[in-house]
């Protein structure tokens, strides 16, 4: 058997969460994992630590404590100004070798997956990918991760009893964002890492965010059909509230109500969202093949005989022009409640 660089006996009973941030705020997925991490830490009586990397990030430590962490390991370096796998993997590796945590969690985002996968090999340990649930066995401190495979058809529980840290990436959206506790304090540990420009192999030429339409990986798809009519505002609002995007069947695209890039189905894009909400869609075969891989499908249509109901988990017979505004309003109200 191959040993991890950190031996189980020397690993510290601590849970670490790698924190992604943007524009001076911790990313939602990082908060979600802090919330789950806090619960696991309480069950085990272990400390929960956040791992912050960047050029100037020490001020984010307050947010880390407010979301439940006991400690923040802060790594600042000019070469950590923007994400390159080379610098981030080196800095994380050095910090982990200092702190030797037993459990190390990442968000399953593009950067989180890249970093975790590279680091796991460097540490000669295992990595459970895209986990949908986590628990720790009380007696042994072994992390048990729930993952899905075969297109979501099979669930597996995975553990690594003899390797440390026990690494996992966590699927965004599976754990709730914990409430924040303003004024919570914790311990900040600043770490000096050894990075040099020669280590950076990746050159960032340019970076563009926003503006691209990509429905293939959107977590929530709000799709509209002929029944929507020319105005997609309600659908856009709903999509925005749920962190998703808007798609359409062929007729609204034909009519020019919405961009061709948003057409879902046989001659459009195939989507695999957690949730697809089909509004005013009759359910032609050409469309439904595009949402086959959706985890859950809701269909709202005024025609009780609409074929779309055969392809949906939850069916509402009703006028979308009434149901959607009501739904948006109720969701907004619910959101305000949780934020208060």
């Amino acid at each position: 058997m191959v040993d991890s660089l950190i031996h189980p006996h020397e690993a510290k009973p601590e849970i670490w969460v790698y924190l992604e941030h943007e524009g001076g705020n911790l990313q939602t997925v990082s908060l979600e994992i802090l919330g789950k991490g806090r619960q696991l830490a309480d069950e085990m009586g272990w400390p929960l630590c956040g791992l912050l990397l960047g050029e100037h990030v020490v001020h984010l430590a307050a947010q880390v404590f407010e979301h439940g962490a006991d400690r923040a390991w802060v790594v600042e370096h000019p070469l950590l100004g923007s994400f390159t796998i080379d610098a981030y993997a080196a800095a994380t590796f050095q910090t982990v070798m200092k702190g030797k945590p037993s459990v190390l969690l990442f968000g399953a985002t593009p950067d989180g997956r890249d970093l975790a996968a590279r680091l796991a090999v460097r540490l000669r340990t295992g990595l459970n990918a895209d986990c949908t649930d986590l628990r720790i066995k009380r007696e042994s401190g072994v992390l048990v991760s729930e993952v899905s495979g075969f297109g979501g058809g099979v669930l597996a529980l995975i553990e690594m009893p003899d390797h440390r840290p026990q690494m996992a990436t966590v699927r965004p959206g599976v754990f709730p964002v914990p409430g924040s506790m303003p004024g919570s304090q914790g311990e900040t540990i600043s770490v000096r890492v050894d990075l040099s420009p020669q280590m950076i192999k990746t050159r960032i030429i340019e970076r563009h965010t926003s503006s691209t339409i990509d429905l293939t990986r959107v977590p929530v798809l709000v799709a509209g059909g002929r029944g929507v009519g020319p105005d997609f505002t309600d659908l856009e609002q709903l999509a925005h509230l749920l962190g998703g995007d808007v798609g359409a069947t062929r007729p609204p695209v034909d009519a020019g109500y919405i961009e061709r890039e948003r057409q879902v189905g046989q001659t459009g894009v195939g989507c695999s969202p957690e949730l697809a909400i089909c509004c005013g869609i009759s359910g032609a075969f050409h469309f439904v093949v595009g949402i086959e891989k959706a985890e859950t499908v809701i269909a709202i249509n005024s025609d009780p005989e609409a074929p779309i109901f055969d392809y949906a988990d939850y069916c509402v017979v009703g006028d979308i022009h009434k149901v959607l505004p009501d739904l948006v309003q109720a969701l907004q109200a619910a959101r305000e409640l949780t934020h208060d």
């Binding site: 985002t109 950067d111 030429i205 970076r207 563009h208 965010t209 926003s210 503006s211 691209t212």
Partner: peptide, 8 residues
């Protein structure tokens, strides 16, 4: 990347 792309 989230919400767009980068050229590397």
């Amino acid at each position: 990347i989230k919400g767009g792309y980068e050229i590397l």
